[in-house]
């Protein structure tokens, strides 16, 4: 059995949440609270939820994951779900489940690249320098 709390790792402007194994519901609720608190308290701009350690996602957990990502987005933080295993992804598609409105990336590294690219794009749009040289 895993710890009751999932760690949240801060990396520069981003928060990384590595999820391992099955997520019990109470753990998910705690995580949701922890993430929103970290976003409120800090200056996070991106959130990566890495699910490469997750072997099974049912409809309920998928909804929790989506809600986590969407609540981050509502707080102005771009969320990416990374590392969805092929078998899990295919299963979700076959069930007719989607994670709409949430970015996905092959792995954690790509997710961080994606967040970086999104920020540069946003910066260009508002005519500010990108965060390259920050």
């Amino acid at each position: 059995m895993q710890d009751a709390r999932i760690p949240i790792i801060g990396l520069y402007d981003d928060l990384i949440v590595p999820i391992q194994g099955a997520i019990a519901d109470d753990v998910m609720v705690t995580l949701q609270n922890d993430v929103t608190r970290r976003i409120q308290d800090g200056n996070a701009r991106g959130l990566v939820v890495d699910v490469s350690g997750v072997e099974t996602l049912d409809s309920y957990m998928t909804r929790n994951l989506r809600d986590l990502a969407l609540s981050a987005r509502l707080m102005g933080v771009t969320a990416v779900v990374s590392g969805l295993r092929p078998a899990v992804a295919i299963t979700l598609i076959e069930m007719g489940l989607e994670i709409p409105g949430v970015h996905t990336a092959l792995n954690l590294e790509r997710a961080l690249e994606l967040l970086h690219a999104i920020r540069q794009e946003e910066a260009r749009a508002v005519g500010e320098p990108g965060d390259d040289d920050a």
Binding site: T56, D58, Y60, M61, R85, A87, V88
Partner: peptide
């Protein structure tokens, strides 16, 4: 329940994808 379903599916020789589907079904 989910883990046990996967374990039995694996022992039966289901593919990784099918194990995942079966475990997901048990979870639902």
């Amino acid at each position: 329940a989910c883990d046990l379903a996967r374990e039995v599916a694996r022992k039966l020789g289901f593919s990784l994808l099918d194990q995942t589907k079966i475990a997901t079904a048990a979870s639902e």
